[in-house]
Design a protein around this nucleic acid. Sequence first.
RNA 1: GCCUCCGUAGCUCAACUGGAUAGAGCACUGGUCUUCGGAACCAGGGGUUAGGGGUUCGAAUCCCUUCGGGGGUACCA
Length: 662
Amino acid sequence: MNIPGLLRERFAVVLEPMVEQVDNLLGMIRPTTDPKMGDYQANFAMPLAKRLQRDPIELAEEIIGKVDLADLADRVEVAGRGFINVHLSDDFLAKQLVVISQDERHGISKPIDPQTILVDYSSPNVAKPMHVGHIRSTVIGDALSRIFRYLGHQVITDNHLGDWGTQFGMIIYGYKHFGEADKVKQNPVAELSSLYRYVHELMGLRAGQKRIDQMEDLIAKAKDDLSTLEHENNASNGDDPKSQKKFNKKLKSLRAKRDSLLKEQISLQEKLEIAESDSSLWKDLSDHREIETAVLEETAKLHQGDETNLRLWNDFLPFCIDEIDRVYKRLHVEFDHTLGESFYHPMLSGVIERLEKLDLITKSDGAKCVFLDGFEAPMIVQKRDGAYLYATTDLATLKYRLEEFNVDEILYVVDSRQSEHFDKLFAAAEKIFDQDLRLAHIQFGTVLGKDGKPMKTRSGTLIGLEGLLDDAVTRASEVVCNPERLASFDPPMSEDEQKDIAESVGIGAVKFVDLSHHRTSDYRFDLEKMVSLEGNTSTYVQYSYARTQAILHRVGADGRTSWDDGSKTPPVISHQAERELVLSLLRFEEALQGVRQDDAPNHLTDYLISTARSYSRFNESCRVIDAGNEHVKNTRIMLVRTTGEILKTGLDLLGIRVVRRM
RNA sequence: GCCUCCGUAGCUCAACUGGAUAGAGCACUGGUCUUCGGAACCAGGGGUUAGGGGUUCGAAUCCCUUCGGGGGUACCA
């Protein structure tokens, strides 16, 4: 049910004879900001009046005189400076309720022009443990894919795995020097990831050793710069306020730099001291002084097709994939394709050839570059040493997707820090491929800790995703399975049921929090608050759903009423809370269209919260089973059933499960 | 230095892309009900949308500027 669409059609009939290009004007039909003013408002009379040099109020009056809304609205009026307010009739709402309650798709219309949309999301580096940073891409990409598919588009999901990078060089190096074949065979996933972590640690310590040698010089220089600046200022005393300000700013930044260097020095010293106290670690560190270059060499050998490394890669990869699949399973995320970087490796030289043929390559400092208008730095496609880069793989991937999937749109759900990379990629694509398609970087902000800084553990590593999910489920379980609540359940909840509910609530909470923030903004991840299970949370929505099911259960069957069997007495709206709820249910499509328009799932989370709230109010003031009047009772059963279905569908589109009771 | 994003209630966040009196949730204050499963509902206080200027019927939103913060910036992904 698309009410604004319907209103647009009706108003178009009136506007089209008056002016050209009415699309913009019709776009100004939207829900009212305040329900007192009606249900929908049309704001086009004001700009139109300007264009026609007329009085806006008069013009609005003329328009409502002509528009035919008799079957939809019982009140259409002009207010303020020329706003047109539409108040839908209860009769119309009641009829539409029947329509959406009987339709499997809840009255969602099919797109006029269905698109083939490829969504590229999640894309973790395998072999590294997944951390909080991965959650946004995975959850947002999954939700967008589900929603677009539900709207009637053809959606292809692709997980562009990082399965060919330095991290494999690290694992291979680790295996060759510290690995034990038996152990790896017995428990590959744990063993490989611990090898990865160990090499990672050694590399970090080694880098720290190198860094600390330079520290003294760096600090001396920072102090030097600072005193030079101070000296300069003394010499040019009595300058104008503007340059004084500039000076202060510079001073501040130099001081900050000095302080951060001092801090870094201390923390490095601490780290190294701790490492030194671990004798076997310290020995490995001194035995592997060239670990960084050695790891790069192992990676390079893999890429060149070295037999041993390739065999190890082939052996290890499935285990790494098992590892991430476990997380996906828990998050209920699936992909149509998982074409990682390794898949495109054979095509990379072809990309360079093509670029050379098109005369787009310039050699600079020994690297092959594509210079693009409007960018200071070029897009480097082949390093001085001959190795290919991220950009090269992305171009190969793009080419493959164009040829193989014949797409209309490609959405890259990736961190906003990479926006420059995508700007360049898209600019280059325009030069290389002459195909009319939409390439979009669906960027998102960072997940921050409670303190507003990126989430890290005390040791400085990013917080692991699985541990985080475990925490959420544990906290959810503490609330869901608190004995006082459990006592009121009849029949009682089995342990399996309790577990199932805790899992749904805990995982749902993490996902919903992520999706309910506008994707472009950073947000603070506050586990305490999230699992407090209050406020604008998935729990509230899940709980509302459970309440609908409890009532339907008591009514018997699944709440089907005589309307569904062909008797055509329309439902009756007898209470304000019913009216609000019906209107909310009819707006499901608006919410989904909002997601589509902005590629932003928070439109749907907002909708679900507000619908659940309407339902709570309804639940508070409208009895169902003992409504008294059969007609009212039947209407309410229909409302409860449809609400349940829409809440469930909505959560499902966000990848969140519901349970029948909780 | 250059580019870019952001600054909204005490806190966490919205605001349908320029619409009417800027909304929710926490927290706070008060209230409802012998609960169709109360994890509920209702009411209230709380705002110079960082500051200033501009554009127009109309600005949190667009432009300029100041302040404050994040991110990016040639061989990582």
